[in-house]
Design a protein around this nucleic acid. Structure first.
Lengths: 155, 155
DNA sequence: AACTAATCGTCAGTATGCTAACGAAATTCC
DNA sequence: GGAATTTCGTTAGCATACTGACGATTAGTT
């Protein structure tokens, strides 16, 4: 990056955050190449395993994406045999999402590589800096949640 | 977010980074609603204004996105009259990207709102924490650059 | 000069992420 | 009980982001 452009862009927090996100996606793809699962898919599978039977709209709020995108990703996961969807019995608008046996196997297998990807994303910091960075990051996400267009449902 | 799911996801740096990125996109969209320009488009316009005439591949490396995506975004910017593209004269493979007068006007007008969007993204931190956070963020982006799939051209 | 390498822009395909609008279904409010 | 409102899933449209492949063009090698 030329000095002139670098000076302008590197001073913008949003630019740096986008770049770090890209770096994480790349590290995750590298560590988890064998599983053909993206970070967002992994987040959704984690939520589905923790709260089986949640409907799509609630699931979207759990992972912080909008309904339309979540339906997209869940459809892919269903196509790959990792979740199944059941129409609600007492509320027929709902689609409950359930983990398959393959999902549980996959989550076990991915635990280590996924953990490594997350760890490598912040590995360049010294332990103390890393702790402070994560604390600040969590604080920003927590206080900024309401400003997000797909806010997490908190508590 | 239910306690169970929250516990799993909020402990993952990559998840938090994705969320903060979403929050920034939302803040930027809010502050810059009048201009119909996204953060990536703003980055590209900034680079084009700083280095007019750069070809698409070099421009992609300046802002850290791949050639295909950059061509997409630049096409949109050209459609909106913010840049124009000129085929290279001595190297006919290249397409040089140039800012229009409207681009320069826009950059001036957007300077304040864009600055506010970036500032608000990290506003919840106290000044000292904020400085440390930005320093750590810049360090992670710098050291992780090579791992990105669309690395910045540095220097 | 001719063959090979590399580079550039583009295209197709896939994935995430958002908005706006829609029908279907449930809930709320007289 | 019936009308208005809300909620759910879906669809269409747009934007970012990556890969892999392609033709065109240039650079490098012999």
């Amino acid at each position: 990056m030329s000095k002139k452009t670098a000076f302008a862009l590197a001073a913008r927090p949003g630019f740096l955050i986008r770049r770090l996100h890209q770096i994480h996606l790349s590290l995750f793809a590298e560590e988890c190449a064998a599983f053909n699962v993206t970070p967002v898919q992994y987040s959704i599978l984690t939520a589905v395993a923790a709260q089986p039977g949640l409907e799509q709209a609630a699931l979207a709020q759990e992972v912080g994406i909008d309904r339309a995108t979540l339906a997209n990703v869940v459809a892919r996961l269903a196509r790959n045999g990792l979740v199944r969807r059941l129409q609600g019995r007492q509320d027929r608008r709902l689609k409950h999402v359930l983990p398959t046996a393959a999902c549980k196997r996959l989550l076990t297998q991915m635990e280590e590589p996924a953990r490594r990807a997350h760890e490598r994303t912040i590995d360049a910091l010294k332990p103390r800096e890393r702790a402070l960075f994560l604390k600040a990051l969590a604080h920003l996400v927590s206080t900024g949640n309401a400003h997000s267009r797909a806010p997490l449902r908190v508590s």
